[in-house]
Design a binder for these strands. Structure first.
Length: 702
RNA sequence: GGCGCGGUAGCUCAGGUGGUUAGAGCGUUGGAUUCAUAACCCAAAGGUCGGGGGUUCAACUCCCCCCCGCGCUACCA
């Protein structure tokens, strides 16, 4: 249990891997809780930095580049920009969002590696790995497929057979082949540097199993325990790859640091960059902080090396081993760094009854949400916060999103604020009325109000963000209930003084809401403060009864939230289903082969290359084009059902493949003498079969 | 296979170290109300806490077995 007195906080959120867009599951796993935590700490006046950035190394980056037919550099630039923008629009309040491709990160990582190396803490081992001679690459297990030795499945991966579920190593595969070239890989010797994790087992046992049994979440603690008890082994910290951070040793050509070695160091280099930029005033990735304007560029060390710094990593459960075992061992072994005080990893968020997966088309990408709901970042934050997978996998549904918005944000929070403000406009010309004599109800409500901030704070500090969010909404409920009990609209004609007291109290509640909402709903909090004319107040002001001065004017008060209609939700669900269908279609196996035919059958068809001389639309037909085709033998008319895929202009001059001895047939009153051959893609779209180089019309296809 | 985390009202989820009638929100039903984006407020119905054993005066909470879901099993980022 951490009983230490901490004087500053270093909070990290998992570095998103820049090989593609990120979805709301990632937000729920790490970024939203981290942002709430940090915003809260700042409000309480704590010394805190919040660092994150794009993770831009590893084999998947060049692979994605291959897939998108571009360079790794282009891939990371593209996805870094996309993710960075989304985070900003969602209100992620990073002090810096850095990139692991930056020089300072390469330097920091290499220094870190050398520190361990020079201390003699890394071991060197030579092993045989599969190598793709054509791609000239060592292959990660995932990129080798072959026949499973256990079940005979012919497409088992090098690490696992998806059919029988057994765990494999690439060497076990029968007839292995590279997924990059399709060729069989060869075994080749390679040398790598390993971190002997087993040497740190006693330390890990002491640090995790003993010290953190109480304060780490059960899922995190259990996972760590499982690994430690299973026995730790040396883990390679380098890879054969040409994309990444060079191993800073002689004769290490073609070797880079393992991405999971460099990625967490990214937190440190981001912190260095944060102070570098604040010290120089040259801001590229950091958000300027006035309190750091006098900081030196070496001040980053306090946030990583001082004993009274509390390091907290927010991650998803897939990252537990790296943040709880490997990175801490690296930090500990280096001898210079503090280790995390907590790693509040979340589980996964499912979507509409199924696992979220970008590749399967079953996800809500951040940028897609923001495109469709550009004015509603807080609405998403709230829906995710109330259903974070804190203890177990949770589920996001669009209906639930709608319900949270309509029944809670609109009906409870927005409505309460609106009621208080509208009544004030109506009876007190939009000025905060005076509070006179207090009734028993008043004092009770004011006392209850006072309790909220501390209770919400306790939840946040215990990493219970759902509970904390519920506390926020309960405060709005308190306000609604107070109005329902006191019914100021009834008293307006008889006792305006009393009405004034009631509205004063209601407005004080709204003011506290504006402060307390900031970590959860930053955009709404800002709006609400603007409406109430409330200055920036710290957390400890929340719960107070005199946040708003009597007589001060309220500003224009638009509605904080708007209802989301059924049609909008239905459209989102349809979009989701459609995107999965599209992916499934694309992955559908090709049509099975037709029955065998003889060579004679085949040679009876006369297939030629012909040149399209003329093409025109056919009246009253959506599908047909009437073509004049030079077949080398003659020029003939062919009616072709391609009008939905090609315009006449783009067909003219093309050398198409044509079956010329098909029996003529009248179509739309015109005799068609042959058939143009087309390839039909899985989505039904047509592609012409063109010769690779121009040929004379009439060239036989066979 | 081994290990870890889960399996609590129709739905989404809370339930430190075992102890009075097992909780919240949504949904449902009924009531009250009209200041408010037909919203708020009150109340009720609804669960043999995955199944089966055991420990105990007492178990959702501890132990054992089984079933189900998810994850990890260490060169997948």
């Amino acid at each position: 249990m951490s009983t230490k007195n901490y004087n500053r906080y270093t909070v990290t959120a998992a570095l998103p891997y820049a090989n593609g867009p990120k979805h709301i599951g990632h937000l729920a796993g790490a970024y939203i809780p981290a942002d709430v935590y940090v915003r809260y700490l700042r409000l309480t006046g704590k010394d805190v930095i919040f660092v994150c950035g794009s993770d831009e190394h590893g084999t998947a980056i060049p692979n994605q580049a291959l897939k998108e037919n571009t360079t790794p550099r282009a891939i990371i630039d593209k996805y870094d920009a996309l993710i960075r923008t989304c985070f900003e629009q969602l209100g992620m309040s990073f002090d810096i969002y850095h990139r692991t491709s930056e020089l300072i990160h390469h330097q920091t990582s290499q220094e870190f590696f050398l520190t361990l190396y020079n201390k003699g803490l890394l071991t060197e081992e030579v092993s045989e790995q599969y190598f793709d001679e054509e791609a000239k690459l060592f292959l990660a297990d995932r990129y080798i497929v072959g026949t499973c030795p256990k079940c005979g499945h012919t497409n088992a991966y090098g690490d696992q057979c998806e059919k029988c579920g057994s765990t494999l190593s690439p060497r076990e595969l029968i007839n292995p082949r590279s997924t990059l070239s399709g060729k069989p890989p060869v075994l080749k010797e390679t040398r790598h540097w390993y971190l002997p994790l087993q040497n740190y087992e006693p330390w890990l046992r002491e640090w995790i199993l003993k010290t953190h049994q109480q304060d780490w979440k059960p899922n995190v603690y259990g996972q760590c325990k499982s690994w430690i008890e299973a026995g730790l082994q040396p883990r390679a910290m380098t890879r054969d790859l040409d994309w990444g951070i060079k191993v800073p040793l002689p004769d290490a050509e073609g070797k880079v640091l393992y991405v999971w070695f460099d990625a967490p160091i990214g937190y440190i280099s981001a912190t260095r960059a944060l102070f570098e930029e604040n010290a120089t005033g040259n801001f590229r990735y950091a958000t300027p902080r006035s309190d750091f304007s006098k900081a030196g560029r070496d001040d980053w060390k306090k946030y990583w090396q001082a004993d009274d710094t509390r390091l907290v990593h927010f991650i998803g459960k897939d990252n537990i081993v790296f943040h709880c075992i490997i990175f801490p061992v690296m930090l500990h072994a280096s001898g210079e760094f503090v280790v995390p005080d907590n790693v509040p990893a979340n589980e996964f968020m499912n979507l509409e009854g199924d696992k979220m997966s970008t590749s399967r088309g079953w996800s809500i990408e951040m940028h897609e949400y923001l495109q469709d709901f550009p004015t509603k970042p807080d609405e998403l934050r709230y829906a995710l916060l109330t259903n974070l997978p804190e203890a177990k996998d949770s589920e996001f549904t669009w209906k639930d999103f709608q319900a949270k918005n309509n029944n809670e944000l609109v009906a409870i929070l927005g409505n309460f604020v609106n009621r208080a403000v509208v009544l004030t406009q109506k009876y007190f010309s939009n000025r905060v009325p005076q509070r006179t004599q207090l009734t028993e109800t008043d004092t009770r409500v004011l006392a209850a109000l006072k309790e909220f901030p501390a209770s919400i704070a306790a939840s946040i500090e215990a990493y219970r963000f759902r509970e904390a969010t519920a506390g926020l909404m309960d405060l709005a409920r308190l306000g609604n209930k107070y109005l329902a009990e006191t019914e100021p609209w009834k008293l307006a004609k008889t006792d305006l003084d009393r009405v004034g007291s009631i509205l004063n109290i209601a407005l004080q509640i709204a003011a506290s809401l504006a402060i307390v909402a900031e970590p959860f709903l930053p955009f709404t909090a800002r709006k609400l403060k603007g409406m109430l004319g409330l200055s920036e107040l710290k957390w400890n002001a929340a719960g107070g009864s005199d946040l708003l001065q009597t007589g001060s004017a309220l500003n224009e008060a638009p509605l904080l939230f708007e209802k989301i209609e059924d049609t909008v939700i239905e459209a989102q669900i349809k979009k989701l289903v459609d995107s999965r269908r599209a992916v499934e279609l694309a992955q559908q196996p090709a049509e099975p082969a037709k029955a065998e035919i003889s060579f004679d059958d085949f040679s009876r068809m006369d297939v030629r290359i012909g040149t399209v001389l003329k093409a025109e639309r056919v009246e009253k037909s959506k599908k047909l084009l009437k073509l004049q085709v030079d077949t080398g033998i003659d020029v003939r008319t062919v009616m072709s059902g391609i009008a939905e895929h090609f315009t006449p202009e783009e067909v003219i001059g093309k050398q198409v493949t044509i079956l010329i001895n098909l029996a003529p047939r009248k179509i739309m009153g015109v005799e068609s003498q042959g058939m143009i051959l087309m390839a039909a893609d899985k989505d039904g779209s047509l592609r012409m079969l063109l010769p690779g180089k121009p040929v004379e019309p009439g060239a036989q296809v066979g």
